[in-house]
Design a protein around this nucleic acid. Structure first.
Lengths: 227, 227
DNA sequence: GTATGATTCAAACAACTGTTTGAAACAGGT
DNA sequence: ACCTGTTTCAAACAGTTGTTTGAATCATAC
């Protein structure tokens, strides 16, 4: 290699700038400028900006989800067929993410902020990529949760899982657009306290009494395709 | 006016396109094309793209927050000084938003999706604008919640409010990037069921047992500026 | 009708975007 | 030394961006 780690330095700079300004607002010239490499290096090493974006996610997401699967495997092996405690399942799924977010030095924190922000605004081509990357993990965790909560309707479990994703994304995105919590509470990196707070909030939501659904919502009337 | 409602048609088209593709990815030519007005009309009526974005938010947000304040006023008047039930407070704050989101014909639904997506990714200049627009409302609702939950530490209440904002933003953004819930469950507009589900989840989270915070987090050690 | 101010329009502007190019610099093996 | 494949570099490319311009068109009042 002529210069060490050109790829890596591009990825690091891109990750950081994407987190700060978003994909569209970040130009290749900003990235290559911050990484102190030539402009053409991005297209040489990654082919295109889109592929660079995908790679920024891939290099961390693969490891993250493997970790989640591994810990779930361990948990289920220990239980030996018996249903798990819901709290244990969530601790694995969200705990791994928040552990990564606590790593401010290795760039994990930056990445989790980026990931949190991306969930809400999937830029067309990232959506498919994310769904694909998550498919296997989600299938396993959904199944585990459903098995762990036999009395609760599946649809309700999935919705609550959806809400939890929202709460975590927002918390991890690190932006408090409306200034709800104290100013420096977010960026001082006290990830452990955040983890404890978020987890008890989510568990409370998961265990909440089932909602009184408006009539006709529980089972949707099938008007079209009556046959 | 030469053509009726040029301003309005630009705002409608912009709102819809911003929701679909984001601010940066939406060009003025797309907007004016969809609105069937001349390209220069945006700069003539709004001055700049940034100001157009602000106006897209302003025209609905002002009404939304006024509505929230009004309903809180009514609630507090009825209570006559006594602390309110937390659930009532949340029903006002989030209920108004979700009622707006249920209005798919008047564009309220589109706007709330846009708002939900914007919370996580405040594009520099939108952040200040949003915070300013929300300041008065948040102050009132924070105070009401704190008064309604005298036993709970204020910091904890604010964090949980923060998490609720996340859950709602995500739910309202209408994107399920990871395909957690069933495909068509999001866009069929069954806002009432969503409201019921989300509200019981959030209330469960609010009432959850307080987290065990790691040592040294409850009261931050003051190292700098010891004097 | 004519004058006036507001609005619309087609065309152009300069600046910036991601990408490509071809030559230069580098590394390692023979 | 030479050759070979990889990587870097400055420069240019074609396309798109938000914005501006000056003339044309409209509505309204006199």
């Amino acid at each position: 290699m002529a210069e060490i780690d050109t790829r890596q330095r591009i990825l690091d700079a891109a990750e950081s700038l994407f987190t700060e300004h978003g994909f569209d607002a970040t130009t290749l010239r900003q990235i290559t400028g911050a990484a102190e490499v030539n402009l053409a290096a991005v297209n040489y090493h990654f082919g295109s900006k889109e592929e660079l974006i995908r790679e920024v996610f891939r290099r961390r997401l693969t490891w993250l989800n493997q970790q989640r699967l591994q810990e779930l495997d361990r948990l289920e092996a220990e239980a030996g067929g018996a249903p798990l405690k819901p709290s244990r399942i969530l601790e694995v799924f969200f705990g791994v993410a928040l552990k990564m977010a606590a790593d401010s030095k290795g760039g994990g924190r930056t990445f989790m902020r980026l990931l949190g922000r991306t969930y809400t605004k999937p830029s067309e081509f990232v959506r498919g990529f994310l769904a694909e990357e998550y498919a296997a993990v989600l299938a396993r965790f959904k199944a585990a949760l459903i098995k762990a909560l036999p009395g609760v309707p599946q649809e309700e479990i999935l919705w609550r899982f959806h809400f939890m994703m929202g709460a975590m994304s927002y918390a991890m995105s690190g932006t408090d657009a409306l200034h709800i919590v104290a100013k420096h509470a977010l960026d001082d990196g006290d990830a452990e306290a955040l983890y404890a707070r978020l987890m008890s909030f989510m568990l409370g939501g998961l265990r909440a009494p089932l909602p009184m659904l408006p009539a006709g919502s529980a089972k949707r009337p099938r008007i079209k395709k009556a046959a």
